[in-house]
Simulated scan of single mutants.
Amino acid sequence: MKRRTTTIAALGALLALTALTAQQAGATTVRVHYPAGKEGIGIIGNKGPMSWSKGVPAQRPEGPVNVWTYTWPDELGEVQMKPTLGEEKISIGGAYTLAAGSTVDIYPFFGAPFGKLTIVKDFASPQLNNKRALRIWLPPSYAENPAKRYPVLYMHDGQNLFDARTAAYGVEWGIDETMNRLIAMGKAEEAIVVGIDNTPERIAEYTPCCDPKYGGGKLDAYGAFVVDTVKPYIDRTYRTLSGKENTAIMGSSLGGIASVAIAQRYPDIFSKAGGVSSSFWWNNGAMIAKLPARVPVKFYLDAGTVDDGLPETTRMLEAMRAKGYRENEDLLFFKAEGARHNETSWAARVEKPLLWFFPWGSTKQ
Protein backbone atom coordinates (compact mmCIF):
# COMPACT_ATOMS: atom_id res chain seq x y z
CA MET A 1 0.00 0.00 0.00
CA LYS A 2 2.85 2.39 0.89
CA ARG A 3 4.51 1.78 -2.47
CA ARG A 4 1.25 2.43 -4.38
CA THR A 5 0.66 5.66 -2.42
CA THR A 6 4.20 6.78 -3.25
CA THR A 7 3.61 6.01 -6.96
CA ILE A 8 0.38 8.01 -7.03
CA ALA A 9 2.07 10.93 -5.30
CA ALA A 10 4.91 10.84 -7.81
CA LEU A 11 2.48 10.84 -10.73
CA GLY A 12 0.64 13.76 -9.16
CA ALA A 13 3.87 15.72 -8.84
CA LEU A 14 4.75 14.94 -12.46
CA LEU A 15 1.32 16.11 -13.58
CA ALA A 16 1.69 19.37 -11.67
CA LEU A 17 5.14 19.94 -13.15
CA THR A 18 3.86 19.23 -16.67
CA ALA A 19 0.99 21.67 -16.18
CA LEU A 20 3.35 24.38 -14.88
CA THR A 21 5.70 23.90 -17.82
CA ALA A 22 2.77 24.06 -20.24
CA GLN A 23 1.55 27.31 -18.73
CA GLN A 24 4.99 28.81 -19.21
CA ALA A 25 5.57 27.57 -22.75
CA GLY A 26 2.04 27.50 -24.13
CA ALA A 27 -0.47 24.77 -23.54
CA THR A 28 -1.93 21.91 -25.54
CA THR A 29 -4.94 20.50 -23.75
CA VAL A 30 -7.24 17.51 -24.10
CA ARG A 31 -10.59 17.51 -22.30
CA VAL A 32 -12.05 14.04 -21.90
CA HIS A 33 -15.82 13.97 -21.41
CA TYR A 34 -16.70 10.72 -19.67
CA PRO A 35 -18.39 9.61 -16.39
CA ALA A 36 -15.29 7.85 -15.08
CA GLY A 37 -16.18 7.93 -11.39
CA LYS A 38 -13.55 6.55 -9.01
CA GLU A 39 -11.66 4.80 -11.81
CA GLY A 40 -10.56 8.12 -13.24
CA ILE A 41 -9.17 8.91 -16.68
CA GLY A 42 -5.58 8.36 -17.76
CA ILE A 43 -3.79 9.47 -20.90
CA ILE A 44 -1.47 7.34 -23.02
CA GLY A 45 0.36 8.70 -26.03
CA ASN A 46 3.47 8.96 -28.13
CA LYS A 47 5.36 11.87 -26.51
CA GLY A 48 6.33 13.56 -23.28
CA PRO A 49 5.51 11.86 -19.99
CA MET A 50 3.00 9.73 -21.89
CA SER A 51 3.77 6.43 -23.57
CA TRP A 52 1.63 3.80 -25.24
CA SER A 53 2.35 1.35 -22.43
CA LYS A 54 2.07 3.65 -19.41
CA GLY A 55 -0.46 6.40 -18.84
CA VAL A 56 -0.48 9.56 -16.77
CA PRO A 57 -3.55 10.64 -14.78
CA ALA A 58 -5.84 13.37 -16.03
CA GLN A 59 -7.33 15.87 -13.62
CA ARG A 60 -10.96 16.73 -13.01
CA PRO A 61 -10.99 20.54 -12.87
CA GLU A 62 -13.28 22.80 -10.91
CA GLY A 63 -16.11 23.12 -13.36
CA PRO A 64 -18.12 20.71 -15.50
CA VAL A 65 -18.72 17.33 -13.96
CA ASN A 66 -17.17 14.38 -15.78
CA VAL A 67 -14.68 16.50 -17.74
CA TRP A 68 -11.12 15.28 -17.21
CA THR A 69 -8.25 17.49 -18.38
CA TYR A 70 -4.64 16.91 -19.26
CA THR A 71 -2.20 19.55 -20.50
CA TRP A 72 1.31 19.40 -21.97
CA PRO A 73 3.73 21.98 -23.42
CA ASP A 74 3.39 23.05 -27.02
CA GLU A 75 7.05 22.28 -27.61
CA LEU A 76 6.15 18.60 -27.91
CA GLY A 77 4.53 19.45 -31.25
CA GLU A 78 1.80 17.23 -32.66
CA VAL A 79 0.84 14.50 -30.21
CA GLN A 80 -1.16 11.31 -30.62
CA MET A 81 -3.01 10.07 -27.56
CA LYS A 82 -5.82 7.90 -26.25
CA PRO A 83 -7.67 8.04 -22.93
CA THR A 84 -7.84 5.11 -20.52
CA LEU A 85 -10.48 4.27 -17.94
CA GLY A 86 -8.47 3.53 -14.86
CA GLU A 87 -5.15 1.92 -15.69
CA GLU A 88 -6.24 -0.90 -17.98
CA LYS A 89 -9.21 -0.04 -20.21
CA ILE A 90 -8.17 1.79 -23.39
CA SER A 91 -10.76 3.70 -25.39
CA ILE A 92 -12.29 2.01 -28.43
CA GLY A 93 -11.44 3.42 -31.84
CA GLY A 94 -8.48 5.31 -33.21
CA ALA A 95 -5.91 7.56 -31.61
CA TYR A 96 -6.62 11.27 -31.31
CA THR A 97 -4.17 13.70 -32.92
CA LEU A 98 -3.71 17.09 -31.25
CA ALA A 99 -1.84 19.92 -32.92
CA ALA A 100 0.46 22.02 -30.76
CA GLY A 101 -1.47 24.80 -29.03
CA SER A 102 -4.89 23.22 -29.55
CA THR A 103 -7.59 22.46 -27.00
CA VAL A 104 -9.59 19.40 -28.01
CA ASP A 105 -12.72 17.87 -26.50
CA ILE A 106 -13.10 14.11 -26.93
CA TYR A 107 -15.95 11.78 -26.03
CA PRO A 108 -14.60 8.23 -25.74
CA PHE A 109 -16.15 4.91 -24.82
CA PHE A 110 -14.61 1.76 -23.40
CA GLY A 111 -17.30 -0.93 -23.73
CA ALA A 112 -18.09 -3.43 -26.47
CA PRO A 113 -18.16 -1.84 -29.96
CA PHE A 114 -21.71 -2.85 -30.80
CA GLY A 115 -24.55 -0.44 -31.53
CA LYS A 116 -28.22 -1.02 -30.82
CA LEU A 117 -31.22 -0.97 -33.14
CA THR A 118 -34.54 0.45 -32.04
CA ILE A 119 -37.72 0.50 -34.17
CA VAL A 120 -40.44 3.14 -34.10
CA LYS A 121 -43.59 1.64 -35.61
CA ASP A 122 -46.36 3.45 -37.44
CA PHE A 123 -44.52 6.73 -37.77
CA ALA A 124 -46.96 9.09 -39.47
CA SER A 125 -46.29 11.25 -42.50
CA PRO A 126 -48.68 14.21 -42.78
CA GLN A 127 -47.13 15.06 -46.15
CA LEU A 128 -47.95 11.64 -47.67
CA ASN A 129 -50.92 10.67 -45.50
CA ASN A 130 -49.45 7.28 -44.56
CA LYS A 131 -47.35 5.53 -41.90
CA ARG A 132 -44.17 3.51 -41.83
CA ALA A 133 -41.48 2.33 -39.42
CA LEU A 134 -38.25 4.11 -38.58
CA ARG A 135 -35.29 1.82 -37.82
CA ILE A 136 -32.84 3.80 -35.69
CA TRP A 137 -29.34 2.45 -35.10
CA LEU A 138 -27.66 4.02 -32.10
CA PRO A 139 -23.86 3.74 -32.07
CA PRO A 140 -21.86 1.81 -29.46
CA SER A 141 -21.17 4.67 -27.04
CA TYR A 142 -24.73 6.04 -26.99
CA ALA A 143 -25.80 4.49 -23.68
CA GLU A 144 -22.31 4.56 -22.14
CA ASN A 145 -21.33 8.20 -22.64
CA PRO A 146 -24.32 10.53 -22.14
CA ALA A 147 -22.21 13.62 -22.89
CA LYS A 148 -21.69 12.68 -26.52
CA ARG A 149 -23.76 13.83 -29.51
CA TYR A 150 -23.68 12.29 -32.97
CA PRO A 151 -23.93 13.02 -36.70
CA VAL A 152 -26.89 11.41 -38.44
CA LEU A 153 -27.23 9.47 -41.69
CA TYR A 154 -30.76 9.18 -43.09
CA MET A 155 -31.28 6.17 -45.38
CA HIS A 156 -34.21 4.98 -47.49
CA ASP A 157 -35.56 1.41 -47.80
CA GLY A 158 -35.08 0.93 -44.08
CA GLN A 159 -36.33 -2.67 -44.19
CA ASN A 160 -33.25 -3.70 -46.17
CA LEU A 161 -30.55 -2.14 -44.00
CA PHE A 162 -30.23 -4.14 -40.78
CA ASP A 163 -32.13 -7.44 -40.90
CA ALA A 164 -32.31 -10.12 -43.61
CA ARG A 165 -35.72 -11.18 -42.27
CA THR A 166 -37.28 -7.87 -43.31
CA ALA A 167 -35.17 -7.23 -46.42
CA ALA A 168 -37.06 -7.30 -49.69
CA TYR A 169 -34.98 -10.12 -51.20
CA GLY A 170 -33.70 -11.76 -48.03
CA VAL A 171 -30.33 -9.95 -48.09
CA GLU A 172 -29.53 -6.99 -45.83
CA TRP A 173 -27.01 -4.20 -46.32
CA GLY A 174 -25.40 -4.99 -42.95
CA ILE A 175 -25.15 -1.32 -42.05
CA ASP A 176 -24.90 -2.12 -38.34
CA GLU A 177 -22.15 -4.72 -38.75
CA THR A 178 -20.20 -2.42 -41.09
CA MET A 179 -20.47 0.56 -38.74
CA ASN A 180 -19.46 -1.55 -35.73
CA ARG A 181 -16.38 -2.78 -37.58
CA LEU A 182 -15.28 0.62 -38.90
CA ILE A 183 -15.74 2.24 -35.47
CA ALA A 184 -13.85 -0.51 -33.64
CA MET A 185 -10.98 -0.25 -36.13
CA GLY A 186 -10.73 3.49 -35.62
CA LYS A 187 -11.55 4.22 -39.25
CA ALA A 188 -14.96 5.90 -38.87
CA GLU A 189 -16.66 8.22 -36.45
CA GLU A 190 -19.75 7.06 -34.62
CA ALA A 191 -23.02 8.15 -36.22
CA ILE A 192 -26.71 7.52 -35.77
CA VAL A 193 -28.26 5.79 -38.78
CA VAL A 194 -31.98 6.32 -39.40
CA GLY A 195 -33.54 3.81 -41.77
CA ILE A 196 -36.82 5.11 -43.19
CA ASP A 197 -39.00 2.22 -44.36
CA ASN A 198 -40.50 2.32 -47.82
CA THR A 199 -44.22 1.84 -48.49
CA PRO A 200 -46.32 0.37 -51.33
CA GLU A 201 -45.94 3.86 -52.85
CA ARG A 202 -42.15 3.48 -53.00
CA ILE A 203 -41.77 4.25 -56.71
CA ALA A 204 -43.87 7.39 -56.50
CA GLU A 205 -42.32 8.62 -53.24
CA TYR A 206 -38.73 8.26 -54.42
CA THR A 207 -39.14 9.92 -57.82
CA PRO A 208 -39.76 13.29 -59.43
CA CYS A 209 -42.50 13.64 -62.02
CA CYS A 210 -42.93 11.78 -64.26
CA ASP A 211 -41.52 8.77 -66.07
CA PRO A 212 -43.48 7.74 -69.21
CA LYS A 213 -43.67 4.12 -68.01
CA TYR A 214 -43.70 4.31 -64.21
CA GLY A 215 -45.23 7.68 -63.43
CA GLY A 216 -43.98 8.82 -60.03
CA GLY A 217 -43.93 12.37 -58.80
CA LYS A 218 -44.23 12.33 -54.99
CA LEU A 219 -40.57 13.06 -54.26
CA ASP A 220 -41.21 16.65 -53.17
CA ALA A 221 -43.68 15.44 -50.55
CA TYR A 222 -41.33 12.64 -49.45
CA GLY A 223 -38.41 15.08 -49.15
CA ALA A 224 -40.57 17.37 -47.02
CA PHE A 225 -41.47 14.35 -44.85
CA VAL A 226 -37.78 13.60 -44.24
CA VAL A 227 -36.83 17.23 -43.57
CA ASP A 228 -39.89 18.54 -41.73
CA THR A 229 -41.11 15.45 -39.85
CA VAL A 230 -38.47 12.73 -39.54
CA LYS A 231 -35.43 14.92 -38.84
CA PRO A 232 -37.12 17.11 -36.18
CA TYR A 233 -38.32 13.95 -34.42
CA ILE A 234 -34.82 12.46 -34.43
CA ASP A 235 -33.22 15.72 -33.26
CA ARG A 236 -35.57 16.14 -30.29
CA THR A 237 -35.56 12.45 -29.30
CA TYR A 238 -31.87 11.58 -29.60
CA ARG A 239 -28.55 13.31 -28.90
CA THR A 240 -27.77 14.48 -32.41
CA LEU A 241 -25.47 17.04 -33.94
CA SER A 242 -28.26 18.64 -35.92
CA GLY A 243 -26.37 21.07 -38.17
CA LYS A 244 -25.96 20.44 -41.88
CA GLU A 245 -22.26 19.65 -41.51
CA ASN A 246 -23.25 16.55 -39.52
CA THR A 247 -26.28 15.44 -41.56
CA ALA A 248 -26.16 13.01 -44.50
CA ILE A 249 -28.66 11.19 -46.70
CA MET A 250 -28.17 8.04 -48.78
CA GLY A 251 -30.06 5.39 -50.72
CA SER A 252 -29.84 2.97 -53.62
CA SER A 253 -31.56 2.64 -56.98
CA LEU A 254 -34.58 4.97 -56.86
CA GLY A 255 -33.47 5.81 -53.33
CA GLY A 256 -30.21 7.00 -54.87
CA ILE A 257 -31.87 9.59 -57.08
CA ALA A 258 -34.10 10.54 -54.15
CA SER A 259 -31.01 11.23 -52.02
CA VAL A 260 -29.34 13.32 -54.72
CA ALA A 261 -32.49 15.32 -55.44
CA ILE A 262 -33.31 15.93 -51.76
CA ALA A 263 -29.76 17.16 -51.04
CA GLN A 264 -29.93 19.45 -54.09
CA ARG A 265 -33.19 20.92 -52.80
CA TYR A 266 -32.10 21.18 -49.15
CA PRO A 267 -28.38 22.06 -49.12
CA ASP A 268 -29.00 23.97 -45.89
CA ILE A 269 -30.00 20.67 -44.22
CA PHE A 270 -27.59 18.11 -45.74
CA SER A 271 -23.88 18.40 -46.40
CA LYS A 272 -23.43 14.83 -47.68
CA ALA A 273 -25.48 12.68 -50.03
CA GLY A 274 -24.94 9.20 -51.39
CA GLY A 275 -26.44 7.72 -54.54
CA VAL A 276 -25.67 4.00 -54.72
CA SER A 277 -26.52 2.44 -58.10
CA SER A 278 -28.77 5.43 -58.71
CA SER A 279 -31.56 5.18 -61.29
CA PHE A 280 -30.48 8.19 -63.34
CA TRP A 281 -32.31 6.66 -66.31
CA TRP A 282 -35.56 7.90 -64.73
CA ASN A 283 -37.72 9.94 -67.10
CA ASN A 284 -35.22 9.62 -69.94
CA GLY A 285 -32.40 11.07 -67.83
CA ALA A 286 -34.22 14.27 -66.88
CA MET A 287 -32.20 14.67 -63.68
CA ILE A 288 -29.01 14.76 -65.76
CA ALA A 289 -30.35 17.12 -68.39
CA LYS A 290 -31.84 19.50 -65.81
CA LEU A 291 -29.06 19.35 -63.23
CA PRO A 292 -29.26 22.47 -61.04
CA ALA A 293 -26.34 24.72 -60.20
CA ARG A 294 -23.65 23.36 -57.88
CA VAL A 295 -24.64 23.30 -54.21
CA PRO A 296 -22.36 23.00 -51.13
CA VAL A 297 -22.91 19.26 -50.68
CA LYS A 298 -20.47 16.34 -50.94
CA PHE A 299 -21.90 13.73 -53.32
CA TYR A 300 -20.92 10.06 -53.43
CA LEU A 301 -22.00 8.17 -56.56
CA ASP A 302 -21.27 4.62 -57.67
CA ALA A 303 -22.39 1.94 -60.08
CA GLY A 304 -21.58 -1.67 -60.80
CA THR A 305 -20.36 -2.87 -64.17
CA VAL A 306 -23.09 -5.51 -64.67
CA ASP A 307 -26.53 -4.12 -65.61
CA ASP A 308 -26.34 -1.37 -63.01
CA GLY A 309 -26.85 1.89 -64.89
CA LEU A 310 -23.15 2.69 -65.29
CA PRO A 311 -23.62 4.66 -68.56
CA GLU A 312 -26.25 6.95 -67.01
CA THR A 313 -24.20 7.41 -63.83
CA THR A 314 -21.17 8.31 -65.97
CA ARG A 315 -23.26 10.93 -67.76
CA MET A 316 -24.36 12.32 -64.40
CA LEU A 317 -20.75 12.56 -63.28
CA GLU A 318 -19.82 14.45 -66.42
CA ALA A 319 -22.72 16.85 -65.92
CA MET A 320 -21.73 17.47 -62.30
CA ARG A 321 -18.12 18.13 -63.23
CA ALA A 322 -19.34 20.62 -65.80
CA LYS A 323 -21.26 22.40 -63.02
CA GLY A 324 -18.06 22.79 -61.00
CA TYR A 325 -18.03 19.76 -58.72
CA ARG A 326 -14.46 18.67 -57.94
CA GLU A 327 -13.29 15.07 -57.85
CA ASN A 328 -12.46 13.84 -54.33
CA GLU A 329 -13.46 17.18 -52.83
CA ASP A 330 -17.22 17.36 -53.23
CA LEU A 331 -17.67 14.50 -55.69
CA LEU A 332 -16.54 10.90 -55.20
CA PHE A 333 -17.24 8.11 -57.70
CA PHE A 334 -16.60 4.40 -57.40
CA LYS A 335 -16.94 1.90 -60.26
CA ALA A 336 -17.67 -1.49 -58.73
CA GLU A 337 -16.22 -4.15 -61.01
CA GLY A 338 -18.52 -7.14 -61.38
CA ALA A 339 -21.19 -5.65 -59.11
CA ARG A 340 -24.90 -5.93 -59.87
CA HIS A 341 -28.03 -4.02 -58.91
CA ASN A 342 -28.73 -5.77 -55.61
CA GLU A 343 -28.25 -5.66 -51.84
CA THR A 344 -25.36 -8.12 -51.92
CA SER A 345 -23.33 -5.75 -54.09
CA TRP A 346 -24.33 -2.70 -52.05
CA ALA A 347 -23.41 -4.35 -48.76
CA ALA A 348 -19.97 -5.21 -50.16
CA ARG A 349 -19.08 -1.56 -50.83
CA VAL A 350 -21.16 0.50 -48.41
CA GLU A 351 -18.12 1.24 -46.28
CA LYS A 352 -16.83 3.53 -49.05
CA PRO A 353 -19.47 6.26 -48.61
CA LEU A 354 -19.53 5.73 -44.84
CA LEU A 355 -15.80 6.39 -44.63
CA TRP A 356 -16.07 9.43 -46.90
CA PHE A 357 -18.94 10.88 -44.88
CA PHE A 358 -17.64 10.08 -41.37
CA PRO A 359 -13.86 9.50 -41.34
CA TRP A 360 -12.21 9.17 -37.96
CA GLY A 361 -11.43 12.55 -36.42
CA SER A 362 -13.93 14.49 -38.55
CA THR A 363 -16.69 15.13 -35.99
CA LYS A 364 -16.59 18.16 -33.73
CA GLN A 365 -19.02 18.42 -30.82
Rank of each mutant, 00 (worst) to 15 (best):
E201T: 11
M1K: 12
G274K: 07
D228S: 11
L317Q: 10
E190C: 10
N342A: 12
A58Y: 01
V56Q: 14
A293R: 04
A167Q: 09
I249Y: 01
D105Y: 05
P49Q: 13
A99V: 07
S141M: 11
E327I: 00
G309L: 09
Y325E: 04
R239Y: 01
V65F: 01
P292D: 07
P296S: 06
G158E: 04
P64R: 12
L161P: 07
D211Y: 06
S51L: 05
T240R: 05
M316H: 05
R165E: 13
V276W: 03
G93Q: 10
A293K: 10
L331F: 03
P267Y: 07
T363V: 15
A36E: 02
I119Q: 14
R31N: 14
E190L: 12
S271W: 03
W72V: 08
E78N: 08
L128P: 02
A13G: 12
Y233M: 06
A191H: 03
G251Q: 11
G223F: 00
Y300R: 08
R326E: 15
G158W: 05
K116G: 03
S279T: 09
G55Y: 02
S271N: 13
Y266H: 15
S345R: 07
V67F: 06
E75D: 14
P64M: 11
S51V: 07
D307H: 11
M81V: 14
P61L: 14
S53L: 13
Y169L: 14
E177H: 09
G93L: 10
L310M: 10
K290H: 13
D330V: 04
K213T: 09
N130G: 06
H341C: 06
N342T: 08
E327D: 13
G45R: 03
T103Y: 00
S102I: 00
G26A: 11
R3L: 06
G170Y: 01
A9D: 04
W68K: 04
E327R: 03
M316R: 05
T6D: 09
M179F: 08
C210Q: 11
L17A: 15
P64E: 15
E312S: 13
C210T: 14
V350G: 02
M1N: 12
R165Y: 00
G158D: 06
I288A: 05
F333K: 04
N145E: 14
S277L: 11
P200F: 09
V171C: 00
P61K: 11
L14P: 00
I44D: 07
K54A: 15
P212Y: 00
G42R: 12
K116H: 13
N283K: 10
A289T: 15
P108T: 08
G94C: 03
R326C: 02
K82P: 02
G174S: 11
A25Q: 15
Y34Q: 03
P353A: 07
P296W: 07
N66Y: 00
I8Q: 14
K323Y: 02
R132M: 05
A263T: 01
K148F: 01
T344H: 11
K231I: 12
